[in-house]
Simulated scan of single mutants.
Amino acid sequence: MAGRIGSWLAALVLALSGAAALAETAPDWQAAPVRLMMVDQQGCVYCAAWDAEIGPGFGRSAEGRTAPLLRVDIDGPWPDGIVLDRSPSMTPTFILLKRGVELGRVEGYVGDTYFYPVLAEMMREAGVPVRQDR
């Protein structure tokens, strides 16, 4: 009996340690249920404009708190488990994801005047309520 309890306990510890290891290596997109994936590439002038105009405050915005940014180079590597309607062909492309599944996208950078209204509309159409808490 003691041998079976010891074996059972060892199996439980092994299973729990495996689950912990899996949690530590979970793809970054799983850190939040809704993410905004920005597909960019080195040398993209529109990506640089977004970085300068929107990037510094995005995480503090209502949209950024609702859908934290996940940046991916157009050439990869791509996060495991992402399900897209089609491969991005231009940068920047902003893809709204819920649990890794595409809900909507904006191709190109519309400028600092229109970025947030376009993003808010995409979120509204996808049924993603924008967090208003601070």
Rank of each mutant, 00 (worst) to 15 (best):
M1W: 05
G3S: 06
G6Y: 04
S7F: 13
S7M: 10
W8K: 02
W8S: 14
W8R: 10
A11D: 11
L14N: 00
A15P: 04
S17V: 12
A19Y: 06
A21S: 10
A23L: 13
D28S: 14
A31M: 08
A31L: 15
A32M: 08
P33N: 07
V34C: 00
R35M: 15
D40S: 08
D40V: 01
Q41K: 07
G43Y: 02
G43Q: 01
C44F: 10
C44Y: 13
A49Q: 13
D51S: 04
A52P: 00
A52N: 14
I54K: 04
P56W: 09
G57S: 12
F58E: 02
F58S: 00
R60T: 12
G64E: 03
R71K: 11
D73I: 00
I74E: 04
I74R: 13
G76I: 04
D80F: 10
V83T: 14
L84C: 07
D85P: 01
S87E: 08
P88A: 09
T91F: 11
T91S: 14
P92H: 01
T93D: 06
T93R: 13
L97Y: 03
K98R: 15
G100V: 02
R105K: 11
G108R: 05
Y109L: 07
V110R: 03
Y114R: 09
Y116F: 15
V118C: 11
A120D: 01
A120W: 04
E121K: 08
M122V: 03
E125C: 05
A126V: 09
Q132C: 05
Q132V: 12
Q132R: 14
D133H: 09
R134I: 00
